[in-house]
């Protein structure tokens, strides 16, 4: 009977198995890990803000000294104040007081990272401690006025970027944001490094705590290209906002000359880019003039100074197609 019993059981099992059916459904359940990067909430400093017009720039001083009204297109528009060393901190308190009185938003550029420009520590802060001191002083100088700070152009993008610099920048971001300011880390421009590479560096440099990043600082890539690049990068760093420097990109980048490697320096063809404005495009906080228009790129391209050069300014104004013809003509005739 055992054989029969076995067949009985087998038969019932088979019938049951046929009824149950076969096939399995894929497991699509998601259990997202807690994010290992906590992004600080965005403050949107440019929302409903007016940009502060700096009346104490090199351009304004030259204009006053030479009575050059043709420089008005530049001097009447907001631009950022660069703080290239602790000496530059002196004028900050008066600026922020004036900005606060007028209810406007000042934009500063901190440009004092150790080994700035990869010049073997000849430029920038001598060491991290000095840089920390500089930051502390900057915070003190800014006081209670919430400002926008562009942090260290060319610092994260430099060839000599390393983990130490990243940590330093992260500390700087923390120090500034905890004091109530909005920090935009410089991210380079669209024709230099890939968004992925910059994103990795920015993440190491504390972008999670910052408001966002700055694109095209002191460069001339078109706004469209910079916006595209910035969008890509924004997605990789937690959808941070970004600002684009449109001070000198009205004519786009100078054509690439394989024979020279300094065609970027004071090119003949350059123009003022879009005027500083708050924008409402996705992730683009504002278009700003971060690099002072008219300031020379260096001792090249026919210039012998790092400071304001009227030739550069007149080139910029004359070629800016969005300016009225009269202003352009005035600049043209002035040079």
């Amino acid at each position: 009977m055992t054989g029969r019993y076995r067949r009985l059981v087998a038969g019932m099992v088979t019938i049951a198995a046929l009824g149950v059916g076969c096939g399995r459904q894929p497991d699509t359940s998601l259990h997202p890990d807690p994010p290992n990067i906590r992004y600080a909430p965005l403050r949107h400093p440019f929302h409903d803000a007016t940009l502060y017009v700096d009346t104490n720039t090199a351009t304004t001083r030259w204009q006053k000294a030479h009575g050059a009204d043709w420089l008005d297109p530049i001097t009447s528009r907001p631009q950022a104040r660069w703080i290239n060393s602790p000496r530059d901190l002196a004028g900050v308190p008066r600026m922020v007081t004036r900005a606060k009185d007028r209810g406007e938003l000042p934009v500063f550029v901190a440009y004092y990272i150790p080994n700035r420009g990869c010049t073997d520590f000849k430029q920038g802060a001598p060491d991290a401690a000095a840089y920390d001191a500089y930051l502390r002083d900057l915070v003190d100088a800014l006081g209670a006025v919430s400002s926008v700070i562009v942090l260290e152009p060319d610092a994260a993008t430099a060839d000599c970027y390393n983990a130490g610099r990243g940590k330093l920048l992260a500390r700087a971001v923390k120090a500034l944001t905890s004091a109530g300011h909005s920090v935009y880390l410089d991210a380079g421009h669209s024709r230099w490094r890939s968004p992925g590479e910059i994103a990795t560096r920015l993440l190491q440099s504390g972008i999670a705590d910052a408001e966002g990043f700055a694109v095209n600082v002191a460069n001339r890539q078109t706004t469209t290209d910079s916006y595209r690049w910035g969008l890509e990068l924004s997605d990789l760093v937690g959808d941070r906002d970004f600002i684009i420097d449109t001070s000198r990109n009205g004519s786009g980048p100078p054509p690439d000359d394989p024979g020279r490697d300094d065609e970027w320096c004071n090119p003949r063809r350059q123009a003022l880019g879009a005027p500083p404005q708050i924008t409402h495009r996705p992730h683009l906080a504002a278009l700003l003039w971060i690099k002072a228009p008219g300031e020379s790129d260096g001792k090249c391209g026919g210039e012998h100074t790092y400071l304001f050069s009227p030739t550069q300014a007149s080139n910029l104004i004359a070629a800016a197609r969005w300016l009225p013809q009269a202003e352009r003509a005035a600049a043209r005739s002035a040079s």
């Binding site: 019932m12 019938i15 049951a16 198995a17 046929l18 009824g19 149950v20 059916g21």
Partner: peptide, 13 residues
Amino acid sequence: ADLANAIQIVLTL
């Protein structure tokens, strides 16, 4: 559902 169907089939048979 599958198990119920199987049980039902076996029992009704």
